[in-house]
């Protein structure tokens, strides 16, 4: 089942199109949203997450329109959105932040401690529950941000550049986490780093200049280029060449 459906999404900024009729659908598993900086990935995720209504087109989350007052609660209940950087008032501890988000997500009071405990366990942050957010490393902050998205155990996760600013070890850990989360959810992972999606995404959407340039299985994009020898002969190398071929040639 396609849990996230976007049809003909139009977003413009100062008269210039940022998203120009983007259509995509995301089902269970991990879908990579690949694009260079400025391709419109964050804008697309914000449109899909119900953060900013697109000028045109439709968005459906589990069949519900997040921009209609009547169906918005149903759509948002299915959704967990992780923006690029976690920002929170500095006085908050990890647990406080998550408890506050529970309130904003309308989690019943009696269920909040369990929801926070489950989310922290899912991202391996249980032992840092009382740490202030401002004292966490970049990787931990990113995991805390993912934890807030998991509070309602959503069927859909929208992750915006979750590995940005992380060192190689932290990136590897985060990719493993995303892989676990994608086992039973629809995960849309936006990134400009091919390596992030190379091993975890079964499906890829390549966005460039506000338009979808590729929408298909990851292996299909890798298969579009031949083995040029050297490093480019690996799956990752072919995927990167395929991606560059789409965006440079566009």
């Amino acid at each position: 089942m396609q849990l996230v459906v976007g049809e003909g999404i139009l977003v413009a900024h100062q008269g210039r199109p940022v998203l120009d009729g983007v259509t995509l659908s995301v089902g269970t598993g991990i879908t990579g949203l690949l694009g260079v900086n400025g391709a419109g990935k964050s804008t697309l995720l914000r449109a899909l997450a119900g953060v900013a209504a697109p000028r045109g087109g439709n968005v459906r989350i589990g069949g519900h329109d997040p921009y209609a007052a009547s169906s918005r609660p149903s759509a948002l209940r299915l959704l967990g959105y992780v923006p690029q950087h976690l920002e929170a008032p500095p006085a908050f501890s990890v647990a406080d932040y998550l408890l506050h988000l529970c309130w904003l997500k309308a989690v019943p009071r009696r269920d909040r401690p369990d929801a926070v405990g489950r989310a922290l366990a899912a991202v391996d942050l249980t032992d840092r529950a009382s740490a202030r957010l401002s004292t966490l490393s970049g990787g931990m902050r990113q995991r805390a941000s993912i934890a807030q998205a998991l509070l309602t155990d959503p069927q859909v996760l929208l992750l915006d550049e979750p590995t940005t600013g992380l060192d190689p070890h932290q990136r590897a850990e985060l990719r493993a986490l995303v892989q676990r989360l994608g086992a039973d959810r629809a995960v849309l992972l936006a990134t400009h780093i091919v390596e992030d999606v190379e091993y975890v995404a079964h499906h890829l959407v390549v966005l460039h200049g506000g338009r979808v340039r590729f929408d298909g299985p990851t292996a299909e994009l890798a298969a579009t280029v031949g083995d040029g020898g050297g490093g480019a002969g690996t799956v990752g190398g072919r995927l990167e060449r395929g991606f560059l071929g789409l965006v440079v040639g566009a």
């Binding site: 914000r46 997450a49 119900g50 953060v51 900013a52 918005r72 609660p73 948002l76 209940r77 959704l79 959105y81 923006p83 690029q84 950087h85 976690l86 920002e87 929170a88 008032p89 500095p90 988000l101 309130w103 904003l104 997500k105 309308a106 807030q148």
Partner: peptide, 20 residues
Amino acid sequence: DAARWNEEQLTATLRALPRS
């Protein structure tokens, strides 16, 4: 407090919530 809760990324997080 209002200025601290005005951060763009935080605003985005808040706007994606049922009680935004």
